[in-house]
Amino acid sequence: MATRGASLSFIAGYVDTLGFIALHGLFTAHVTGNFVLIGREVVTPGNDVLLKLLAFPAFVAGIVAVRALVRRRQRAGDDALRSSHLLQAALMLASAACGLAGAGDMATGLLCAAAMGAQNGYGKLLLAQLPASTVMTGNVTQLVIDALDRAGGAERPALAALGAGVLAFAAGCVGGALASRWGMGWGLLPAVAALLAMAAVKGR
C-alpha cells in the first residue's frame, strides 16, 4: 500500500508540474496554488484568470464523481480503489485527447483538474492511512517532526512512507517538467499508464 501511495505522489507531482508549464500557470492537482494565482490577478490582471476560476468547480466535480463511485462500488462489494483509478485515468485520458486534438487549454485543463480532484477524493476516502499524495506542505512538516522524534528515540512508523511520498512527488515534478516539451496531450500519457497499472493490482 505504501508503494501505491508513493506512486500517486509521483503522479501528482508529475501532472501538477506538467500542467503548470503547459497550461500557463494552472495548478491541476491542488486548489491552494490557484487561489494564490487568482489573488495575483487582482493586482496584475492577465488573460488566463477564467481557467483558474473554473478549475475549482472542475476539481470539486472530480471529488463528487469519485464519492458517488466509491459509495456505489462499496455497496456492491467491488474494488472501489480499482474503479477510482480507472475513473481518474479516463478523465486524464480525455484531457490528453483534448490536448492532442488542439481543443484548447480550457477543456484540457478542466478535465485534468477533475482527474486530480478524483485523486484527492479517493485518497481521503480509501487511502486515509497514507500520507496525502498531492499536497506536500503538511507531509514535509510531519516528516521533519517525525525525524526529530525518531532521533530522540521515539517510534515513528510512518516516517518511511512520508519520506517516500515527498521524494516521489519531487521526482514527479522533475518528470513533469521534462515531459512539458511534449505538451499536455503526449505528456499526460505516462501518468495514464501508471494509473492503469495500479488499477491492474488488487487494491483492498
Rank of each mutant, 00 (worst) to 15 (best):
A94P: 10
L178I: 09
A168S: 09
C173K: 01
G117K: 04
T137K: 06
G176C: 00
C98I: 01
L110I: 08
T134F: 05
V166C: 13
Q88K: 05
F169T: 01
A168F: 04
Q88E: 15
A113D: 05
G172D: 04
G172R: 01
L87I: 07
Q119V: 12
G176Q: 03
M136A: 07
P131H: 09
G123I: 03
N120Y: 09
G183M: 00
L93E: 03
Q119N: 12
A161G: 06
M116E: 01
L143M: 14
G163T: 11
A158K: 14
L100F: 06
L167M: 12
L126T: 08
C98Q: 02
A168L: 07
L93W: 04
W182L: 14
G172F: 00
M136K: 01
L100M: 13
A107N: 10
L125Q: 10
G153E: 06
L100V: 11
L159T: 10
A132E: 11
A103F: 13
A177M: 01
M136C: 08
T141A: 12
V135G: 03
A158D: 13
G176I: 00
A96Y: 01
A114V: 09
A151W: 09
G123N: 05
A96P: 05
R150E: 13
S95K: 04
A170M: 13
L167K: 05
L125R: 11
M136T: 05
C112E: 07
A97H: 08
S95C: 03
L126W: 09
D105A: 14
A90F: 04
L125E: 11
L127H: 12
A171Q: 00
M136R: 02
A96M: 06
A170G: 11
G153Y: 10
L127Q: 11
A107M: 12
E155A: 15
A94T: 08
L93N: 03
V174N: 00
A114Y: 06
L143H: 06
M136G: 05
R150Y: 12
L93K: 00
G183S: 04
A132C: 08
I145K: 15
T108W: 02
L167W: 02
W182S: 13
A96V: 07
G175F: 00
L162I: 08
G165Y: 02
G117N: 08
L167T: 12
S133Q: 13
G153S: 10
